[in-house]
């Protein structure tokens, strides 16, 4: 908000909890006068469907429904990355214990199991052996069916950190290393530490290509340093930056505001 104010860009806050949208004519109530909408909802479903409804009402949403659909779901994101030729860890999907065990045999132990949506690292598990995998699958059978879509990924041998880059309008504007806080997961939401990371040519190229894979306009791209070079494992369509701005000194929110304001003039 302050970044927008500083640049003389008028912003209206819209709380999705208080909004309803007629998708057959009429648009959102309360009315949104502005054409450009920056989507910041942390709830996957609310984010996805409010984006669809606002686009149906004629708004330009950053990021678009296409981007949200193809990046907020980790399985669809892996498919999009592979299709675009972005190096990504080997990933499999299974729907039953039998399928999971077969997939894990191909991936090798340990392997990573993640929910396809949401997270902040929540319910992600490092499956170390078959007994552990069976126990986790059994637990998931008592959960919502969405948790029985088993998204499995090779465990990439890497330093105890990963890289989060920020891509705005096809430019890599900032990057941080995320160090884990005594956990195999590096999410800063789980207490992981952020440190500045130099944007090398390799980091820039893979980040931009990953953003393009899902047509992301303002996204966070997660990279790992594997023995074979950088791999991209996620693109985040509603990227958080509160730990990255102090770590890098880069005004990510200001750059985002400038991009959004430029859209209004196009």
């Amino acid at each position: 908000m302050q970044a927008a104010e500083k640049r003389g860009v008028k912003v209206t806050l819209v709380d999705s909890k208080e909004m309803e949208v007629s998708v057959t004519g009429g648009g959102p109530t309360p009315k949104i006068k502005e054409k450009i909408v920056l989507q910041r909802c942390v709830s996957h479903y609310r984010n996805l469907y409010s984006t669809a409804a606002l686009e149906a009402s004629g708004h330009t949403v950053v990021n678009s429904f296409f981007t949200a659909w193809n990046s907020s779901d980790k399985l669809l994101c892996s498919i999009a990355l592979k299709k675009a030729g972005v190096p990504t860890p080997e990933t499999r999907v299974a729907f039953t214990e039998e399928g999971v065990l077969r997939a894990l045999k191909a991936l090798g132990y340990p392997a990573v199991l993640k929910p396809t949506v949401g997270s902040w690292g929540r319910l992600s598990a490092l499956l170390k052996d078959e007994d552990f995998a069976k126990a986790i699958v059994e637990d998931r059978e008592y959960m919502h069916p969405s948790y029985q879509v088993f998204y499995l990924q090779e465990y990439v041998k890497r330093p105890p950190r990963d890289i989060r880059t920020f891509v705005i309008d096809n430019k890599t504007v900032a990057a941080i290393y995320r160090y884990s806080a005594g956990d195999w997961r590096t999410n800063t939401a789980r207490g992981g530490k952020a440190e500045p990371c130099k944007i090398t040519k390799e980091i820039d190229e893979i980040s931009v290509k990953a953003a393009e894979a899902v047509d992301g306009r303002f996204v966070g791209v997660d990279l790992m340093e594997s023995d074979d070079g950088l791999v991209c494992h996620e693109v985040n369509n509603t990227t958080e930056f509160k730990n990255s701005v102090p770590a890098t000194g880069i005004d990510i929110q200001g750059l985002a505001v400038e991009y959004l304001a430029s859209l209004d003039k196009r």
Binding site: V42, S43, G118, W120, A189, E234, T238
Partner: peptide, 10 residues
């Protein structure tokens, strides 16, 4: 404030 839901996160 709303409590964190299962679908919250990046």
């Amino acid at each position: 404030a709303e409590k964190e839901q299962e679908d919250w996160g990046e």
